[in-house]
Design a protein around this nucleic acid. Structure first.
Length: 271
DNA sequence: ACTGGCTCCTGAGGGC
DNA sequence: TGCCCTCAGGAGCCAG
């Protein structure tokens, strides 16, 4: 589920509740995530979060003495701000009880996500060290895509979803950014002209920013930290709109599986 | 080095 | 009602 806008929506929603609050207790109800939640997570009890950062689709809760919790929401994860009295849901796998009386609950039916404690420099962590630039910063620019596309035959859509190239672009926003840039998703990366890569750089940024403004996209199960869905779905041009008329030219939207992922495009607007 | 294919897991929805 | 199939916002790992 969550791509960059959904993770950023989550970060903003829990930041004010979590930063500065002490962890009274961490309850692990189900440790079997993508990586098992290690027992050492208990040692974070009594510590207060100093800041909550997003890196791509990862959340990083920073604690004193270079200690961190790395959180990923996988395909179906969410973090909700709850009261202790709120009823627990099936698949609420971890509960972070805070000194304010609030609880942050990690919910993830498919368990593709992770919650991993670690110490040291986040830049050295194996899951973080090879990540590409953040698309909403100046570190992401046309040159990044131009270099990454050189001699690559992989479809341009797969390339922009490669988090070593640029982080945070998942299956929805890859299709949407390519629509906005007028580029067909199947085009081999090395065949996309520089001018079009310039456009794509802008549309990736725009579509992510637009979605953040709407609280992200809810297709099935994404909820923000307050349990409400995101509203960007109504603004999608192509994703999950196979057979429906293009919002620009009314041509029916096409669908195909590309690199094992559902892909949508307008055959008239995208060349 | 690149590329495509498979895998982890649960749940929803469609067809019969 | 139920069973069986397909598909789903991610991403690491593997073989060729």
């Amino acid at each position: 589920m969550p791509e960059l806008p959904e993770v950023e929506t989550t970060r903003r929603g829990i930041e004010t509740h979590w930063v500065g609050r002490k962890l009274l207790e961490i309850i692990v109800r189900e440790p079997r995530l993508r990586h098992p939640v290690p027992a050492v997570i208990d040692t974070f009890t009594g510590l207060a979060v100093t800041s909550l950062e997003r890196r791509g689709k990862y959340l990083l809760a920073h604690f004193p003495s270079h200690r961190h919790l790395l959180i990923h929401l996988g395909m179906s994860g969410s973090l909700r701000v709850c009261r202790e009295a709120d009823e627990l849901k099936r698949h609420d796998h971890l509960i972070f009880r805070l000194s304010s009386g609030v609880e942050i609950r990690y919910h993830d039916p498919r368990r593709f996500g992770l919650v991993l404690p670690f110490d040291g420099d986040p830049g050295d962590h194996p899951l973080l060290r090879d990540l590409g630039p953040e698309p909403l910063t100046g570190a992401f620019h046309t040159g990044i895509l131009v270099d990454a596309c050189r001699k690559r035959r992989t479809p341009i859509k797969a390339l922009i979803m490669d988090h070593r190239v640029v982080v945070g672009v998942g299956n929805i926003y890859a299709s949407e950014a390519l629509f906005r840039a007028g580029i067909r998703p199947t085009t081999p990366a090395h065949r996309v002209t520089r001018k079009r890569l310039e456009m794509l750089t802008s549309t990736i940024r725009e579509v992510l920013e637009d979605s953040i403004r709407q609280g992200g996209t809810t297709l099935r199960d994404f909820v923000g930290s307050d349990g409400t869905p995101g509203y960007f779905r109504q603004m999608l041009y192509v994703y999950e709109r196979a057979g429906e008329p293009c919002r620009t030219c009314a041509t029916p939207i096409r669908h195909a599986v590309l690199a094992q992922r559902s892909t949508y495009w307008c055959p008239a607007c995208q060349k």
